[in-house]
């Protein structure tokens, strides 16, 4: 009976272990490659360079666990940054209020998308694809062809200089976010509901969960967090243009998927996402220090994304023996394939 226990849990574990191994290999590779790798500044840089993406990745993990997807995050990041910039540039709104307004606008953007998706039943892939185009347009409307800078010093320093020791504010935000996200996803009712909704939204509704409300709120949070990340990005860059953060969505989604969150919802863990973030960041950093072309880096991450699932499948097949023979067909590999190849519904 030993084999009978907990495929879900052990699969997550197994995935995390696999990621951890990849991470260790990456780190060893980096240490061997570059003498500059093991420096405190490099470690901070490594986070700082992508901190906005990985903050958004935390909330994206929730969205994907829920069986949805949000392609519009990068555009909403742009909106957040541009709102702050424009309010600073052409109004006398206090800067902190401007930040709050930007986050609010992001939240509203997410709310709108969540409403379209959850209430009207338009797949989130489609809604947020429209959002990807439309909100980028909004960002462009706001700043047009300008490059807006000259932010208050304290704001620039949020993204550029250390708050606690050498750690910049945004990196601290990330660690708080991932810790908080991990606890919420793994240890609270909110997280439990996310898994259940992602596994089977109808069933969740039949269990008294307000699925529509949950999803609308989740998209609103996703929008607000994205906008806030955009604001942090503005702080790091010190100036804002209409194209700020464009194209980030695929990187963000890649990190979450590599983290073992199933695109069909219902599985995954924040630990996995965290490990995958570390892998991607370290890999990019190490390859960058080894003067490997950005294109090649992207290609290598593509290979790792595919290879890691191949490995997982190889293990899963090796392990099917442990499944109860009477298990419902969704454990049968033959069927799993085609359920799991579904695009986000």
């Amino acid at each position: 009976m030993t084999g009978r226990a907990r495929p879900v849990i052990s699969e997550n574990r197994r995935w995390e272990l696999l990621l951890l191994t990849i991470l260790v290999v990456t780190v060893i590779f980096n240490v061997m490659q570059s003498t500059n790798y093991l420096g405190i500044n490099n470690f901070i840089n490594l986070f700082e360079l992508s901190v906005e993406k990985i903050i958004v990745a935390v909330v994206m993990a929730f969205v994907i666990v829920c069986g949805e997807i949000d392609l519009s995050v990068a555009s909403i990041m742009g909106v957040g940054a541009c709102v702050v910039a424009v309010l600073h540039d052409s109004t006398s709104v206090p800067f902190t209020l401007a930040i709050l307004i930007a986050v609010g606008v992001g939240g509203l953007a997410g709310l709108l998308q969540g409403w379209c998706s959850a209430t009207l039943g338009v797949p989130s892939l489609v809604v947020t694809l429209a959002g990807l185009i439309g909100f980028r347009g909004l960002a462009r409307i706001l700043v047009e062809d300008r490059s807006i800078g000259d932010f208050p010093e304290w704001f620039d320093s949020l993204g550029q200089s250390g708050v606690i020791g050498p750690l910049p504010f945004s990196v601290i935000v990330f660690f708080v976010a991932i810790l908080f996200g991990g606890v919420v996803l793994g240890r609270t009712g909110l997280g439990r509901r996310a898994y259940v909704i992602g596994d089977n939204a109808e069933m969740a509704r039949y269990s008294g969960i307000d699925v529509v409300g949950y999803k609308i709120r989740l998209f609103a949070v996703s929008g607000a967090v994205a906008a806030f990340a955009g604001v942090l990005f503005a702080a790091r860059l010190g100036s804002v243009r209409g194209d700020v953060a464009s194209g980030f969505e695929l990187d963000i989604i890649t990190m979450v998927l590599l983290g073992g969150v199933s695109i069909f919802g219902g599985t995954g863990s924040m630990l996995g996402v965290f490990t995958s973030i570390l892998i991607v960041l370290n890999l990019r950093n190490g390859l960058g220090l080894a003067n490997v072309e950005a294109n090649t880096q992207t290609g290598i991450i593509g290979v790792i994304l595919i290879a890691s699932v191949v490995l997982r499948n190889a293990f899963a097949r090796f392990d099917t023996s442990s499944l109860d023979t009477q298990a419902p067909p969704h454990h049968e590999p033959a069927v799993t394939n085609h359920d799991l190849t579904t695009a986000n519904p």
Binding site: G67, E68, A118, T119, L120, G121, P123, S124, I197, G198, D199, N200, A201, E202, M203, A204, R205, V211, V212, K215, S262, F264, G265, G266, P328, P329, H330, H331, E332, V335, T336, D339, L340, T342, N344, P345
Partner: peptide
């Protein structure tokens, strides 16, 4: 039916 528990019913709810 047919055990699409992991996929088919994952969305909707409206």
């Amino acid at each position: 039916t047919g055990g699409t528990a992991t996929g088919g019913a994952a969305t909707g709810g409206a």
